[in-house]
Simulated assay, not measured.
Amino acid sequence: MSLTSERGKADAAGKPTLYKRIRLDIETRILTGEWPPGHRIPFEHQLMTRYRCSRMTVNKALSELAQADLIERRRRAGSFVRRPQHLSAVLKISDIRAEITALGRSYGYQLLHCRRRTATAADRARLGVTKAGKVVAIACRHSADNVPFAVEDRLIDLSTVPEAATADFAKEPPGSWLLHHVPWTEAEHTISAVVADDDTAKALDIAVGAPCLVIDRYTWRSARTLTAVRLHYPGDTHRLVARFTGG
């Protein structure tokens, strides 16, 4: 192998240079479905052995695949076929479990903690209430094909949803339970972007400082607060889509 091909120039016969052949080989495996979303790409040293080339050549091929959004490179973990972005509706309250199932993926749920307590000043401010009362504070994680999809931080006002005190949120996600048991009349979404702190990064299995999409949702029934929830999604795999009609 010549240094000319290692540096990315075409050979005398006009064939694709080595790093382009590596990129095309991996791209073909991805687009044909041979390597499905989430599949681990062989490590750089394995590709070096397979193609008998330098790390620089392999790295250039992988970098172009990442720039084309075909793979994602995770520090110390390797490279993986990128999963398609997930779509969420902005103008309705969706059930995350149903959303993941609709994508053809396996849903997973983990309750991180569930506490019944007297509302703190911060709880009352978040719920928009003035009187001290009882709340259920819940943190949980949703996953798709065993990959973290979203983490949820929720407060439920027990003065308006007393039945939540006895609900088993270890077995059923709070969002699903609320949609099936508690009617609501008004809701509000606030959408923002943040960088992951230590706890969020650990829960979502992403790097500290990585971008996150955040949805804050509030629901009411006849002007009485039902729940306030904050959802964190990995920013590079989730986007929001809303379609409107005129008139």
Rank of each mutant, 00 (worst) to 15 (best):
L3E: 11
T4W: 05
T4Q: 08
K9P: 02
A13H: 05
K15L: 11
K15D: 09
P16T: 04
I22M: 07
I22D: 05
T28S: 10
R29T: 01
I30F: 06
I30S: 08
I30A: 07
G33W: 08
G33D: 08
E34Q: 15
E34A: 15
G38R: 03
I41S: 08
I41Y: 06
I41T: 10
H45I: 04
Q46S: 09
M48P: 04
T49A: 15
R50D: 07
R55E: 15
R55T: 09
K60M: 14
A61Q: 03
L62N: 10
L65F: 10
A68N: 13
D69F: 10
L70D: 04
E72W: 00
R73Y: 00
R74L: 12
R75N: 09
A77T: 04
A77E: 12
S79P: 02
S79T: 12
R83P: 01
P84R: 02
P84M: 02
A89F: 11
A89K: 14
L91G: 13
K92S: 14
K92W: 05
S94A: 08
I96C: 04
R97F: 01
E99L: 14
I100L: 04
A102P: 05
G104H: 10
G104V: 08
G104L: 12
R105A: 09
R105W: 07
S106A: 11
Y107V: 09
G108W: 08
Y109D: 02
L112K: 09
H113Y: 14
C114A: 14
A121T: 11
A122M: 06
D123K: 04
L127V: 02
L127E: 02
L127D: 02
G133I: 00
K134V: 01
A139D: 09
C140G: 06
H142D: 13
D145M: 03
N146W: 01
N146C: 02
P148V: 07
V151L: 07
V151D: 12
R154H: 01
L155A: 03
T166K: 10
D168Q: 06
K171H: 06
E172K: 13
G175Q: 06
S176N: 11
W177F: 07
L179Y: 02
H180F: 00
V182F: 00
T185P: 05
T185G: 14
H189Q: 06
H189F: 05
T190M: 05
S192E: 09
A193R: 10
V194R: 13
A196C: 05
D197L: 05
D198L: 13
D198Y: 09
K202I: 02
K202V: 03
A203T: 02
A207V: 02
V208E: 14
L213M: 12
V214R: 11
V214L: 11
I215H: 04
Y218S: 12
Y218T: 09
W220D: 10
W220L: 14
R221A: 14
R221K: 13
T227Y: 12
R230W: 01
L231F: 13
L231G: 01
H238N: 03
L240G: 03
R243S: 12
F244Y: 14
G246Q: 05
G246C: 02
G247D: 13
G247E: 13
